[in-house]
Design a protein around this nucleic acid. Structure first.
Lengths: 148, 148
DNA sequence: ATTTGTGCAAATCGTTTGCATCTGA
DNA sequence: TCAGATGCAAACGATTTGCACAAAT
């Protein structure tokens, strides 16, 4: 987590204020100070995997005044808007992924680290027909890693 | 969850007292009344997916005196002993699977139902090399289903 | 007799909620 | 102005823990 916000400048090129504001507006969300700050952290620096707690710590560390409850709210709103994907890999915490495209994950249980597996490399074959009255919503592949 | 224990008889043929006792002993666990009862429910009737809460309800319903804390203890001890596999599919609850062999799962989010996908049908290809210093411990494939 | 397991209730952890206050359009 | 957003603290559900008592070897 190297991302850092500056008092009077935007963290990276990828998400300037205007673009982020527009992005939130399109999602039907008011571009409040808190949402803009969180969006800048999330979308300003490539693909990221965050927990609510971690994002809150990061926001506060970067000088932003934002409550944990608001971070939870924002993460769920962003997910509803399709800006984030929610991942169930750990059972105890919920991860959010800024990469909403179809891809899979490495998960290092010992330190809770989550990484993208380059899309396109993994193929899942031989899926049976889903049970009657059901359809496949999504296939999650989690490759669990351990340190040698 | 059709499994049911009878007051004075063992639930199914698959797990008679002697066999279950032996199984626990081999795992280094004293065959206490509670562990035997839980083992009978878990291993007496084919492959099962349970949460601690659900197993506790089931045990109590079958007339067994056992606390929820003991159910949690037993589930984790059984997992350590390799009798169960722990699954992270849901984020809020932890599921335990009596089928410890290599297989994958359907998960119906709307009602929290978890089903085995027949082993052998799914193939995962094109796995990249794991990052340096890491090795693959396990690959979990969860096919998320929605009702049509 | 010694060791291990159990049950209860309190503690903990991540997350959600109720509600008074604030803020952006 | 005023719907919508925020922050706090309390509520929550799943799980863990501390410790006195009970059961297994």
């Amino acid at each position: 987590m190297i991302t850092r916000a500056f008092p009077h400048r935007i963290p990276t090129t990828a998400g300037n204020d205007a673009a982020l504001t527009e992005r939130l507006r399109v999602a039907g969300l008011r571009p409040t100070r808190q949402r803009l700050a969180l969006a800048a952290l999330l979308f300003g620096a490539g693909d990221r995997h965050v927990t609510a707690e971690a994002l809150h710590v990061e926001a506060v560390a970067s000088g932003e005044r934002v409550s944990l409850a608001t971070v939870y709210n924002a993460l769920h709103q962003f997910r509803h808007a399709g800006l984030l994907r929610e991942l169930a890999v750990d059972g105890t915490r919920t991860y959010f992924d800024t990469n909403t495209s179809n891809h899979n994950h490495y998960f290092v249980e010992s330190d809770g680290e989550l990484m993208d597996i380059p899309s396109g490399s993994i193929r899942v074959d031989g899926l049976p027909e889903p049970p009657a009255g059901m359809k496949i919503a999504h296939i999650d592949v989690v490759v669990r890693l351990v340190k040698i």
